[in-house]
C-alpha cells in the first residue's frame, strides 16, 4: 500500500512504526499482531467498531499499557526514549472537570514534559501556552476555572495543551466526540495546519461519513489491522464491511457513505 515511499526513508525519519504489537487485558487479547508504519506529515484516522481496540492501540503505541508482544518505535527509537516528541489528547471524560485549576494551568501542563522534574514553568512557557490558547480561540477563557466550560471548550483546552507540548507525533483519542459543529471545524482546521507543518497526527475517530473528508490516510482496525493506506484506496465498501463485520446499522451507514463518495 504505502510501502514504496516509506522504503526510501531512514528509520529515524519514520514518525511511528508499530511491529507485531499484541495487547491483552487479563489474557484476553484486544490487539493482535499490529503492523503499522506511518509516513511523516500525514493525518491518519483510526476507524473501527466499538471494542476494536482503537484507544488501546494509541495508548499502547505511547507505552502507557503493558504489551504482550511486539514493539513500537518513534523516529527509529523505542517510544520510552521519545516521549518528548509525542503529544497526546486524551478522551475528554478521562479527567475530573471540577478540579480546581484554571484553563491556563491545564495548558501549562503541556510544558511539563519539556521542563523535566521539579522545574517550574516560566514566562517563556506562559507565552507558549497563551499562543496555543489563541490558536484554539480560548485565550479569553485563560483565567476561567475549567468547570465552567462547555464540552467543545474543554476539548479545545486539551488540544491547546497538546499544542503546548510542541511535539512531532500527536495521538488524539476521539477529539470530535460530543463537540459542537464550530469546534469540530476549528479542530479539523488546526489538524490540517499541523499536518502542513510536517507533523504526524493519529486520530481515533467514530464517524464514518466525515472520516473520508478529514483524513489523508485511514487505519481500519478490528483487533487486527484490516487495512491501512490512503483514504481513497481504503475507504471502500468491501474493506469497511470487513472492518465493521455484520453490524447492520453501521453497514447501511457505510453504504450511504460510499454512495456519497461515488
Amino acid at each position: 500500500m504505502m510501502a514504496n515511499p516509506l522504503e526510501s526513508l531512514a528509520d529515524e525519519q519514520v514518525p511511528l512504526e508499530v511491529h507485531d504489537l499484541t495487547v491483552a487485558y487479563q489474557k484476553r487479547p484486544v490487539l493482535w499482531g499490529i503492523d503499522v508504519k506511518v509516513p511523516p506529515g500525514q493525518l491518519v484516522g483510526i476507524l473501527g467498531p466499538n471494542g476494536a481496540g482503537k484507544s488501546t492501540l494509541i495508548k499502547a503505541a505511547m507505552g502507557l499499557l503493558p504489551v504482550s508482544g511486539g514493539w513500537v518505535k518513534v523516529f527509529g527509537r523505542p517510544v520510552k526514549e521519545q516521549l518528548k516528541r509525542i503529544g497526546y489528547v486524551p478522551q475528554r471524560e478521562s479527567v475530573d472537570w471540577d478540579f480546581p485549576v484554571s484553563v491556563m494551568d491545564v495548558v501549562l501542563m503541556g510544558r511539563y514534559g519539556r521542563l523535566g522534574l521539579f522545574r517550574r514553568p516560566g514566562a517563556a512557557d506562559r507565552d507558549i501556552a497563551r499562543a496555543c490558547l489563541e490558536k484554539v480561540k480560548m485565550l479569553p477563557f485563560a483565567d476561567r476555572q475549567i468547570a465552567n466550560l462547555s464540552g467543545g471548550q474543554q476539548q479545545r483546552v486539551f488540544l491547546a495543551r497538546a499544542l503546548a507540548q510542541e511535539s512531532d507525533v500527536y495521538f488524539m483519542d476521539e477529539p470530535f466526540a460530543g463537540v459542537d459543529a464550530a469546534t469540530e471545524s476549528a479542530i479539523i482546521e488546526l489538524l490540517h495546519e499541523l499536518r502542513n507543518r510536517g507533523k504526524t497526527i493519529l486520530v481515533v475517530h467514530h464517524d464514518l461519513p466525515t472520516a473520508r473528508n478529514y483524513f489523508d490516510m485511514l487505519l481500519l482496525l478490528n483487533m487486527r489491522v484490516v487495512a491501512f493506506g490512503k483514504t481513497e484506496e481504503v475507504f471502500t465498501y468491501d474493506l469497511l464491511q470487513k472492518t465493521y463485520g455484520g453490524r447492520l446499522t453501521i453497514l447501511s451507514e457505510v453504504a450511504e457513505a460510499v454512495r456519497q463518495k461515488s
Partner: peptide
C-alpha cells in the same frame, strides 16, 4: 513545595503525566 508541579499533574491527569515522562 519541590514537587508541586508533578503532584498537581499526577492528581489531575495521571495518564497524561505518563506521556510527559513523569
Amino acid at each position: 513545595v519541590v514537587a508541586y508541579k508533578e503532584l498537581l499533574l499526577v492528581s489531575f491527569d495521571p495518564v497524561f503525566s505518563r506521556v510527559c515522562g513523569l
